[in-house]
Amino acid sequence: MAVKFQRPHSLCDVRLHYCAGCTHGIIHRLVAEVIDEMGIEGTTVGVCPVGCSVFAYNYFNCDMIEAPHGRAPAVATGVKRARPDLNVFTYQGDGDLAAIGTAETVHAATRGENIVVIFVNNGTYGMTGGQMAPTTLPGQVTTTSPYGRDPKTAGYPVRVCEMLSTLSGTALAVRTAVDSVPHIRETKKMIRKAFENQQRGNGFSIVEVLSTCPSNWGLTPKESIKRLQEECIPYYPLGVYKDVEIAEANADLLAMGGAAK
């Protein structure tokens, strides 16, 4: 019998520290599978965040740099500008990317920084024990919104892909989820597209992946998947918010008198 499915080479053969059922592990594997399939492990540098995925530098076999909280897009900018020949990705959570690192995220995008951003959105600060995140849903109970997030005092969740899709430098802004095998396959396809964008010099590509946090949501892994499907996806609709290649193809079609896709 031949092995049909196993750990990709660019994911280190170590036990991940994540809680049981945490979907970070799936997303790590998808990034690693894409790196393997594109044959770019030896020319890739990853930048990891502060948050639950802070130890991602121990999990990817490519070279890794640990960034201060929220600064991964700036660190990745430094790597890419110094060494444009390298493939560069950041791996960030929602507190990192959409709160403390908002300026770095927005400006890397608007510069059209030629990097890949993997944005894991589970609506909570996992590492510090489940505080309210910029992406926590209205009404959601966390340790710092113990009566449920009240938009009147705590404001509204940030929809990152929608926001970044308005910027000219963004090449790809897409939201996926890892709640099911079809969605996992779609996520992988989009991560691959993001890395291909970088190789084609298209600019900033962000893949937002809706994820779970069973421990801090206070649910079992299976219940967490259900919540992701029933509460998170309706608030954060999946889909392609911007794809510069489709936009350009459509512009060409329209110019030739055809219909847009």
């Binding site: 540098v45 930048v47 740099i65 600064r71 700036a74 660190v75 900018t77 430094g78 790597v79």
Partner: peptide, 22 residues
């Protein structure tokens, strides 16, 4: 060489970290 005006001092020094890291 590369000249890049960052969005803040905070971003600039982290770009330095990235480039220095390579």
């Amino acid at each position: 060489g590369v000249f890049l005006q960052a969005e803040s001092e905070v971003a600039a020094i982290n770009m330095v970290l990235g480039a220095a890291g390579t």
